[in-house]
């Protein structure tokens, strides 16, 4: 049995090179505007890719 199970890989390294298109929802960390905290947002490109797959 593995002692160390990876749940998600090196996402940030890859998207350092590929990211920054600027087409996703803007981020707001305020508690007032609820639906745009950066941790809880999704990449539009990945969403499109997963739809196409």
């Amino acid at each position: 049995m593995a002692h160390l199970k990876i749940v998600n890989g090196s996402d940030l390294i890859r998207c350092t090179a590929e990211g920054g298109c600027g087409e996703c929802q803007v981020s707001c960390q305020s508690a007032v505007k609820t639906s745009s905290a950066v941790a809880n947002q999704k990449c539009e490109n990945k969403a499109e890719k997963s739809k196409a797959e």
Binding site: V7, N8, L12, T16, G19, G20, C28, Q41, K42
Partner: peptide
């Protein structure tokens, strides 16, 4: 909402480092 982090489709590093977009975007 706050427990909802999608690791498979998370934002790129550029977006994460910008964080708060206020006054800019």
């Amino acid at each position: 909402y706050r427990f909802n982090i999608d690791l498979k489709r998370s934002p790129c590093a550029i977006k994460r480092l910008k964080g708060c977009s206020c006054g800019n975007e």
